[in-house]
């Protein structure tokens, strides 16, 4: 395509000056205002955004279910894997940490299997929801560039997908905990409340990470390491309290243990252990910490995600 020809073409067409902003006539922004046109990609106000998200609830639910269904659709056992995966995980952790490494010492030795499995299942829920959320925007650019919907629907759908998995895992967990000799108590009625709080935290955290992951590409490479550090810092395999007081422990200062207990994963793990395992020692202020993290993450994460709503899609 030669330039001289195009120049003549422009002259022939006599159209508006092209390639440069129009000057001299009414500014286009004014014209738009006069006819009540709105920016195609303006960020809606927070209440409007929430309403839009609510209107898309069917999409969120269907998307989450569809992802779960398609995940196992190629395997022969199909949806059975939703139960088999957590059971196999529990078996491996028990074998590795309970039998081979002999971590079942200290104050939790009497109920170590239940202690370990509960910690693992609770942590896995947060870990998977948060890692999924981090990829939910950067991994769905084609969807974002094709259809209109509040972008928060994606991290939300990823968390709900993990929540659906969790419901199955919880069935396995309860069965295993009963099998290790625990008995049903009235405290079990509070399990849904604990899960709700954890889900609120997970949604908030995955929203925040979704925004970070949408621009920081390297986050996906870093996340496994962050997650592993978090896993070790949350007392999944060992009792954090033992590391302070017990003679066999590492002799951590008390404030380190307090900080570790305050981290959200440890808080939700401890809460669930307290509810499920009768003889597990109660942490002070555990409910307060859990409620704090749930509200802080959900409100903060949602606000943080919404602030960049119009920017997702640029990649």
């Amino acid at each position: 395509m030669s330039q001289p020809e195009s120049a003549t073409a422009d002259a022939q067409a006599g159209g508006p000056s092209v390639g440069t902003p129009t000057t001299g006539q009414e500014p286009l922004a004014k014209l738009a205002e006069r006819y009540g046109l709105r920016r195609a990609i303006a960020r809606p106000s927070l209440p409007v955004y929430l309403r839009q998200l609510w209107e898309r609830r069917h999409f969120v639910m269907t998307y989450a279910t569809s992802r779960n269904v398609s995940k196992y659709s190629n395997s022969a056992l199909g949806q059975l894997w939703q139960v088999l995966t957590p059971m196999l995980n529990a078996a491996i952790y028990w074998l590795m940490f309970g039998v081979i490494l002999g971590a079942n010492k200290g104050s939790v030795s009497e109920y170590y299997p239940a202690f370990l499995i509960t910690g693992m299942f609770v942590f896995t829920y947060t870990q998977r929801a948060v890692s999924g959320g981090a990829k939910s925007i950067s991994g769905n650019l084609s969807l974002i560039r094709a259809l209109h919907f509040p972008r928060a629907a994606l991290p939300l759908a990823y968390t709900i997908q993990e929540f659906q998995q969790l419901l199955i895992s919880m069935g396995v967990l309860v069965a295993l905990v009963l099998a290790t000799g625990e008995s049903v108590t009235w405290f079990w009625l509070l399990i849904p409340v604990a899960l709700l709080l954890q889900t609120m935290f997970n949604i908030g955290a995955s929203l925040a990470l979704a925004r970070i992951g949408s621009t920081a590409r390297d986050l996906n490479q870093l996340l496994p390491f962050i997650m592993r550090t978090w896993l070790y810092a949350s007392g999944v395999f060992f009792s954090i309290g033992d590391k302070v007081s017990s003679p066999s422990g590492a002799g951590l200062p008390q404030w380190v243990a307090d900080v570790m207990y305050f981290n959200p994963a440890a808080a939700y793990i401890e809460l669930m252990r307290e509810l499920l395992i009768a003889q597990h020692e109660t942490r002070p202020y555990i409910w307060l910490v859990c409620v704090f993290w749930a509200l802080f993450a959900l409100i903060g994460g949602f606000w943080y995600f919404w602030r960049a709503e119009e920017k997702y899609g640029r990649g």
Binding site: L37, R39, A40, I41, I144, R145, K311, G313
Partner: peptide
């Protein structure tokens, strides 16, 4: 895609009804 409001503009704007 920019008219559809799916791609954020680097500068300038798209106004739609």
């Amino acid at each position: 895609r920019a008219i559809a409001g799916l791609l954020p503009p680097h500068s300038g704007a798209v106004y739609t009804d």
